[in-house]
Nucleic acid binder design. Structure first.
Length: 155
DNA sequence: GCCAACGTTGGC
DNA sequence: GCCAACGTTGGC
């Protein structure tokens, strides 16, 4: 079992959207490191922290709930879709570039854990999303950090 | 809206 | 292969 954190801007795709959809293809990721994590390291059943970035006073940046990996890695179909904002002209059916997994809704926290609180927690030292300048939208999370968050920090 | 940090692109 | 320029991310 591996653990992950995925980021999304709430205005783009929120945890409530995932709750409504039950599951969704985590497509549109256009960063090689993030792609490699999904393509090479994600396994069915892996647990995923759902993080909202680019926060506002109403929806502060932080962890809002849990998702899980519900598919094997597969081609990201949006790379072929000329009408999609994530269309990649360098990708082709014979030479796909981008991959993703499907993530399923598990639960939404009653209270999100805001970034400010994550930063205060000395036991979360090393969590990627707390690193200065961290921009990766898919990052691995250690079991210790995951358990700390889901068993001790949430209400 | 600002701006630092980062990844990617492309000229050489 | 270097590196400046550029676009994007994301906290504040």
């Amino acid at each position: 079992m591996n653990y992950w954190l995925i980021k999304s801007e709430a205005s783009c795709y929120s945890i409530d959207d995932l709750k409504r959809d039950k599951k969704t293809a985590w497509s549109g990721i256009r960063n090689y490191q993030a792609r490699n994590f999904m393509r090479d390291d994600m396994r069915l059943g892996d647990q995923v922290l759902f993080y909202h970035s680019n926060g506002t006073p109403e929806i502060p940046s932080g962890i809002y709930g849990i998702a899980k990996v519900v598919s094997k890695p597969h081609r990201d179909e949006t790379q072929f879709d000329t009408k999609d904002e994530h269309f990649d002209p360098k990708a082709s059916e014979t030479n796909p570039i981008w991959a993703c997994v499907d993530v399923g809704f598990v639960r939404k926290f009653k209270q999100p854990i805001p970034l400010t609180e994550l930063k205060r927690d000395s036991k979360l030292k090393g969590l990627a999303v707390l690193e200065r300048g961290s921009r990766l939208s898919v990052t691995p999370v250690s079991e210790e950090h995951f358990l700390r968050i889901v068993t001790e920090l949430i209400q």
